[in-house]
Design a protein around this nucleic acid. Structure first.
Lengths: 220, 220
DNA sequence: TTAACGATTTAGTCAAGGCTAAAAATATAA
DNA sequence: TTATATTTTTAGCCTTGACTAAATCGTTAA
């Protein structure tokens, strides 16, 4: 059984999140930025994770996560996202407040705790940011989703997730009235700067820059 | 503002719990036993806690907790006991399962989390073992209570807490049917070995050794 | 094809928190 | 009072996970 320290668990989660496309390895610098540590510290950690065989590490060429590593990363994400649901649904946290606290809660070691929490929350499938919660086997039921910028003019859909989970971004969305589950229609697309105007729930129009729109994910 | 590491927080909690009577200082060996670390490690930690002025440390003479330290220790106990209530009341943990998990949860740093948790749990005053939960100011509303061995023959009362929180002891109590809140009457006291026979809720009699009885606390 | 730049790794340091072994202080018994 | 036993502390070492500075690798531009 592979045991990870808290720091290793954090790094592995970051690597998993960064290995989206999956082709090229994840770079040391990217991990450094994501983890807010120095590249030198990352190199050291990659060596350790490589020894534990949760990643494949070729010096100077970035890393790939292994099957074993993926299972562990998904387990971590499951814990984290369940705690986020708990904080929002039960303790009335707003979705921009949950990240730090969930980052700490995720390290509590107790399989039974997570199982009971899942049950207590009613087996949620998505967290407050719309990200899917892996089940106990690591299976993820993901929804097809597109950045808002990709929706065609007059196209409709439903906001299902966000890319950027920073408190600043989420508070901005709260302020303008965009939220997970909102039904939207694209009223205008400005070719020049990529900004869009959308109608939310058939009653409110929001104008947003491209920078905002690419971070909003929509299901058709 | 005094900041404590996780280890320091654990030690301070242990010292607080051990400084019951308060007269003599708490010994290095006692702390070592409670924390399951070596005395040498304790000495080192006491030096650190002394520097942070949460304890008064005179080499070779044990330690006393300071006013500042007491506040921090009570804050820790508040967190720990609230989490224990959560685990038992909401996640259906049994009272012998909560200790380890709560020990980890207690280190999550978020005042708002604890405040919300308290509210969510309905501002409980006692944890699943009957220990009082300090309020946000560190005030403890304690109940007068006596070991079951001190109750006179034919005396009655109510079980309100336990001294021993080991899983083995708590499971034993579950098995024989003793629980927090049970109304009891002392039917017999054996002078020879200190064992007692009690009537629980006017329907079940339990015979228990002195070792068990001293760990059961009763309110008259 | 080589020079230079950026990315990455290595080497050495630090703090936290544990350990063992040995020294020192206190407590106890002769 | 002195010798022994117990408790506590010191000294030195280990691991984890961070850091800085310096060296090295890979890539790109001349």
């Amino acid at each position: 059984m592979i045991k990870l320290t808290h720091a290793e668990e954090n790094y592995l989660k970051a690597i998993y999140k960064l290995s989206d496309a999956g082709k090229k390895g994840v770079s040391t610098n990217d991990i450094s930025a994501e983890m807010k540590t120095k590249p030198a510290s990352v190199s050291d950690m990659l060596r350790k994770l490589g020894e534990k065989e949760v990643i494949e590490y070729r010096k100077y060429y970035g890393v790939h996560i292994t099957q074993e590593g993926k299972i562990l990363a998904l387990r971590t994400l499951r814990k984290q996202r369940l705690w986020e649901v708990f904080l929002v649904d039960k303790l009335r946290f707003s979705w921009d407040e949950v990240a730090e606290v969930a980052d700490e809660l995720v390290h509590v070691q107790s399989p039974i705790l997570i199982q009971r929490l899942d049950e207590y929350l009613g087996f949620p499938k998505f967290d407050p940011h719309g990200d899917p919660i892996p089940d106990e086997h690591g299976d993820v039921r993901s929804r097809p989703r597109l950045p808002l910028t990709e929706i065609e003019l007059n196209g409709t859909g439903q906001i299902v997730a966000v890319n950027d989970k920073s408190a600043a971004f989420l508070r901005y969305l709260d302020k303008v009235g965009a939220y997970i589950g909102a039904r939207i229609k694209v009223l205008e697309k400005v070719e020049f700067d990529g900004s869009v105007e959308i109608l939310v729930d058939n009653k409110k129009t929001i104008f947003m820059s491209k920078d905002v729109a690419v971070n909003i994910l929509v299901m058709l």
